[in-house]
Amino acid sequence: MRASVQEIVFDCADPAALVRFWAELLGGEPVDRSGDWSYVDPPGFVRLAFQRVPEGKSVKNRVHLDLEVADLERAAEGALPLGAARVGDLVTDEQGSFQVMRDPGGNEFCFVSG
């Protein structure tokens, strides 16, 4: 059996707010299917969906997105006004560089380069 990824779903407290953050970051139009479910289809990427859950985020994500960018500092600085936050310092090793970030819902993601 072989499956394909239909969408990546984030549990969150405010789907409408979180979908707008990701739509602004990756492109695409945010869609609010209901008060409990929103999604965006970023160009060239799988659908990201956001569903309301009653519990808050309490630990680090077990899975996160790595977003390749040409300029890490510019990407991080551009995401801050959208509601993102930096997590730690820029990391550089033999494979390249990355900056860990959090979206407004507290979900970690990374900008990567190299």
Rank of each mutant, 00 (worst) to 15 (best):
D14S: 12
N61C: 09
A23D: 05
P81Q: 10
L67G: 03
G88A: 10
W37H: 12
A13M: 02
A70S: 14
G35L: 05
E108G: 02
V46T: 13
V63M: 06
V9K: 00
A49H: 01
G35P: 03
K60A: 14
R33G: 05
F109V: 09
D103F: 04
L18S: 04
V91I: 14
G83C: 09
Q6Y: 00
P30R: 07
E68H: 05
V87E: 14
D103Q: 12
P43M: 07
Q95E: 08
S97I: 05
Y39L: 11
A17S: 14
F109R: 06
V87T: 14
V63I: 14
P30Y: 01
A85R: 15
F45P: 00
E73L: 04
A70P: 01
L18D: 03
R86F: 11
L65V: 04
Y39T: 09
E94Y: 03
R20N: 07
L25M: 15
E77A: 15
S58P: 00
D66F: 01
G106D: 06
W22K: 10
D66Y: 00
D103R: 09
F50I: 13
R2T: 13
A49D: 02
S113P: 00
E77N: 15
F45N: 11
A84I: 13
P15W: 04
C110A: 05
A49W: 01
W37M: 04
D36C: 02
P54M: 02
P43F: 09
G78A: 14
